[in-house]
């Protein structure tokens, strides 16, 4: 449903547009259901992004990051 390349800011901007459209009451039934479906996908994307920076601060030194990347765990 959502573009995997979509950034957080793209997703939130699209979500705001969707909510605005739904609030306007101008969307038909089919469009409303499609917008809700798209919006749920975007919320999920945003939640995933926020979760990724909410798990707790992880501090690495540059050489540790390089090692992790070399081990394929980065």
């Amino acid at each position: 449903m959502t573009d995997p390349e979509l950034t957080y800011e793209d997703a939130t901007a699209r979500l705001e547009a969707i909510i605005k459209r739904l609030d306007s009451g101008e969307a038909g039934l089919r469009e409303t259901l499609e917008l809700c479906k798209e919006g749920r996908g975007l919320v999920e994307l945003c939640a995933t992004e926020l979760e990724a920076v909410g798990q707790g601060l992880q501090e690495l030194r540059l050489d540790e990051l390089v090692t992790r990347l070399q081990e394929g765990a980065g």
Partner: peptide, 10 residues
């Protein structure tokens, strides 16, 4: 409120 990954390059 950000708690992601920091890479320190001292």
């Amino acid at each position: 409120g950000w708690a992601g990954r920091i890479v320190w390059a001292f």
